[in-house]
């Protein structure tokens, strides 16, 4: 019989009741911030391994798998005044702590694409907890908000110890979960400069609510049936949202244009392969989904 140096039950039952820890992540410290400056000060003090906790819908799952191991979390969910959609000089500002569900249920003229696209985000409970700014900060290349900020050429507003700065979304996403935000900076809002009445996002995943295998978004300016300008942004085909170099200006808004644009977009991408789809399949999806996004944008 093997002997181990383990205290007998009578020795230890006194000093501990039967409350167990039922958490999974690696150890971290938890901090709460009550305003933006407080957040920034705490991030500076806690160092580069500290992370902001907002809705927690991506970060906490990664922590539970111990794939993310932040040394500290700064919970910003009690900060007031960052949960808003506001029309602003023809554009739209969305506060960083605005829940996906709020965007989904708020119709803003010229920005219908945002509320429509929100239904692709996870499941209802996820949409009720996850935040707009959190999704941008996480920087998943298939995330609906990441794609749409690039599509609509939005500005990411950051605040840090060196003050406030605005980074164009087109320069914000640097690769897999990498962004232009410094560890001591916090996203406070996202600014969309102008409306996009003809815009759409569509995507494909095998099950409802999963991460997109490929997501396609498109924006058009139309005069009657002619395309004045076009913009197409893809997710799931590379480490960050990919702007497709296809200019549809001057072409008719019809099925043939959409199909050809889809083919052209597919020809431009060289997507990675993983368990959810090979690169070759992602190219086929790109062709299909770009055509569908354009058709929906024009409708």
């Amino acid at each position: 019989m093997v002997k181990y140096d383990i205290p007998s039950s009578s020795e230890r039952s006194e000093d501990k009741d039967t409350e167990w820890s039922v958490v999974k992540p690696a150890a971290f410290t938890y901090h709460r911030a009550y305003d933006v400056n407080d957040t920034i000060a705490q991030l500076a003090e806690l160092g580069p391994d500290a992370k902001i906790l907002a809705g927690g819908q991506s970060l906490v799952a990664m922590m539970n798998f111990r794939l993310a191991r932040p040394s500290a979390l700064v919970d910003i969910t009690r900060i007031g005044g960052l949960d808003f959609l506001a029309k602003d000089a023809g554009g739209l500002r969305i506060g960083a702590l605005t829940r996906h569900r709020t965007v989904e249920t708020t119709k803003v003229d010229g920005f219908e694409v945002l509320s429509k696209a929100a239904r692709w985000i996870g499941h209802y409970p996820i949409r009720c907890r996850g935040t707009f700014g959190g999704s941008i900060a996480h920087g998943d290349s298939t995330a609906e908000w990441c794609l749409l900020t690039v599509l609509l050429e939005a500005w990411i507003v950051l605040q840090g110890p060196r003050g406030r700065r605005e980074v164009p979304a087109t320069e914000f996403f640097h690769g897999f979960f990498m962004t232009a935000a410094e560890p001591d900076e916090m996203i406070v809002e996202v600014r969309f400069p102008r409306p996009a009445p003809h815009a759409a996002l569509t995507e494909f995943s095998q099950r409802q609510g999963d991460f997109a295998v490929v997501a396609a978004s498109a924006r058009l300016d139309l005069a009657e049936n002619e395309i004045l300008t076009s913009r197409i942004v893809l997710g799931g085909v590379g480490p960050q949202p990919a702007v497709v170099d296809v200019d549809l200006a001057g072409q008719p808004a019809n099925e043939e244009t959409w199909r050809a644009a889809g083919e052209a977009a597919a020809a431009q991408v060289d997507p990675p392969s993983d368990g959810h789809g090979s690169g070759a399949y992602r190219k086929k999806l790109t062709a299909t989904l770009v055509a569908r996004a354009l058709a929906e944008a024009a409708a």
Partner: peptide
């Protein structure tokens, strides 16, 4: 690994 607490056991196992 054996420990008094599941969390401690998971940390030690790692």
């Amino acid at each position: 690994v054996l420990a008094d607490d599941p969390y401690e056991a998971e940390d030690l196992a790692e």
